[in-house]
Computed example of a mutant assay.
Amino acid sequence: MKSVKIGSLEISGVDSDGDVEFTIEGDWNDAYTYVPVADLVKALEDLGVVPANTEETSSFHKSIEEFLKDRGFTVSKILDVEQETRTGGYCETCAYEEVVVDITFEDGDGQWTLYTYFGDMGELIRELTD
């Protein structure tokens, strides 16, 4: 799980329950709390730290949702769409890199699911618009 450290504050990525962990290191012990990611995003939007969900983002998420439904998934909400480069192979001579787009979504039962599209964001967008 990814995490970010800012001074004595550590913010960990979303866990399997859909919560973000905040840990503050103290002199004698640490304090921590868990916040549902939806509540955290809403709070940041309310503070103006991140923009509220725009019409453009909403349209993109609807396209991603249809893309996943066409592949047999039940989707209630798109949570994240992120491109990354992964490395693979078992040795130095057969090592390779591939660009993928990870789509995290909530299904009809409230479970979080990760779907990996093997290609870059541009290829995914072209597929969405064909």
Rank of each mutant, 00 (worst) to 15 (best):
M1W: 01
K2H: 04
K2Q: 04
S3F: 06
S3Q: 05
V4H: 03
K5Y: 04
K5F: 01
K5L: 08
I6A: 12
G7E: 08
G7L: 04
G7M: 07
S8P: 05
L9I: 10
E10V: 10
G13N: 02
V14H: 01
V14Q: 02
D15Q: 09
S16I: 12
D17A: 13
G18S: 08
G18H: 03
G18D: 04
D19P: 04
D19S: 12
D19R: 14
V20D: 06
E21K: 06
T23R: 15
T23Q: 15
I24Q: 05
E25V: 03
E25L: 03
G26M: 05
G26D: 05
D27I: 07
W28T: 08
W28P: 02
N29M: 11
D30I: 02
D30K: 11
A31T: 11
T33W: 09
T33P: 00
T33L: 14
V35K: 01
V35Y: 03
P36N: 14
P36Q: 15
V37E: 14
D39L: 12
D39F: 13
L40H: 06
V41L: 13
V41D: 09
K42E: 12
A43Y: 09
L44Q: 07
L44D: 09
L47I: 02
L47K: 10
A52W: 03
A52G: 11
T54R: 08
E56C: 05
E56Q: 14
E56H: 11
T57E: 11
S58G: 02
F60P: 05
F60S: 07
H61V: 02
H61C: 06
S63N: 06
S63T: 03
I64Q: 01
E66F: 05
F67S: 00
F67W: 13
L68Y: 00
K69T: 05
K69L: 02
K69P: 01
G72R: 09
F73A: 07
F73S: 04
F73L: 06
S76A: 07
S76W: 04
K77Q: 12
I78K: 04
L79Y: 15
E82N: 10
Q83D: 02
E84C: 10
T85E: 11
T85F: 08
R86P: 09
R86M: 07
G89M: 13
Y90N: 15
Y90K: 13
C91E: 11
C94N: 15
Y96D: 13
V100E: 11
V100L: 13
V101T: 01
I103M: 01
I103V: 06
T104M: 15
F105G: 01
F105R: 00
D107M: 10
D107S: 08
D107A: 09
G108Q: 14
D109P: 01
D109N: 10
Q111V: 06
W112C: 10
W112M: 13
L114A: 07
Y115L: 03
T116G: 02
T116H: 08
F118C: 12
M121T: 00
I125P: 03
R126Y: 10
E127K: 15
L128K: 05
L128T: 03
